[in-house]
Computed example of a mutant assay.
Amino acid sequence: MSALISILDDEPAIRDILSDALQEAGYRTMTFARATEFEAALRKTTPDLCLVDLGLPDRDGLSLVHRLALEQGATVIIISARAQTQDKITGLELGADDYIIKPFDPAEVVARIRARLRGPKRQASSQTARFEGWTAHFDRFTLEDAEGVETAFSQAEGEVLRLFLESPKRLITRAFMQETLGGQAGDSFDRAMDVRISRLRTKLREDPKNPRLIKTIYGAGYIFLGDVSWS
């Protein structure tokens, strides 16, 4: 069965454009004008990806993105007319996987969705990784420390963490991250990776000035230095 995309935007024309483009590309779609309708549908159906506008009439779009990403581990792409760099950074920090500015090319939206859906589930059979006193539970999007205290991470953060844990003690270049995780190369992608890695370091209680596990190799990429076992 084809992937299901939920579209939340209060503009009927935008919903129609996105829905038509996605259905033509072979996806199933559900469309919503209000956050309350969208959230009610989520209790019955789990979409593969959510397209969310920030300017909603009944909810703050950013808080909705944060809940979707952090509590439900959903794959989320923001589509918004807010073009300021700070808006993009905030959206990515709250857990969005990508940020598309209106007006947009429907073909580009389809391409970005295809890239997002291609990346995250490449090795979904392995759901638990243990490393340096931590356990990453990818089935419920949490990090568990040695005392059993759990900290949630988003789908986007989980993609990056899985990438590191699948290739410990090997250089992960920016080009490899872009190819594996999807998205367009450039400043926007680089900033998104910086944000996610910074948030992962915080959750792993790393010293930001001298991280022990996720090391930056300036001009080359990153390397994860822990020993990892999967189950």
Rank of each mutant, 00 (worst) to 15 (best):
A107K: 14
A115S: 12
Q127L: 07
W134N: 05
A129K: 02
R114Y: 13
I113A: 06
I101W: 01
A136K: 00
G148H: 00
D98M: 08
F138Q: 03
R118G: 13
Q123R: 11
R116A: 14
G148Q: 03
A115P: 02
S126E: 12
A115L: 04
L143C: 09
G133D: 08
A96L: 06
S126I: 13
D105H: 15
L143K: 01
A111S: 14
A136N: 02
E108A: 14
T128Y: 09
D105T: 11
A96M: 10
D139V: 02
E144Y: 04
D139P: 00
R114Q: 15
D97C: 15
A136Q: 00
T135R: 12
D97A: 15
S125T: 13
R130V: 11
H137A: 05
A107V: 09
R122M: 07
K102A: 09
A107S: 14
S125E: 15
S126K: 13
R116H: 12
E108F: 15
D139L: 00
R118Q: 12
I100W: 09
A111R: 14
E144I: 09
Q123T: 05
P103H: 04
H137G: 02
E132T: 11
I113G: 04
D145I: 03
Y99S: 07
A111C: 10
I113H: 01
Q123D: 10
R140K: 11
R140G: 02
A111I: 01
P106V: 05
R118L: 11
A124K: 12
R112D: 01
R116G: 00
I113V: 12
V110L: 11
F131V: 10
H137E: 01
R116T: 04
Q127T: 14
R112M: 03
F141L: 11
D98N: 07
A96K: 03
G133I: 11
P120R: 11
R122D: 11
T142C: 04
Q127W: 02
P103I: 06
A96G: 01
I113S: 07
A129P: 06
F141K: 04
P103Q: 08
L143I: 01
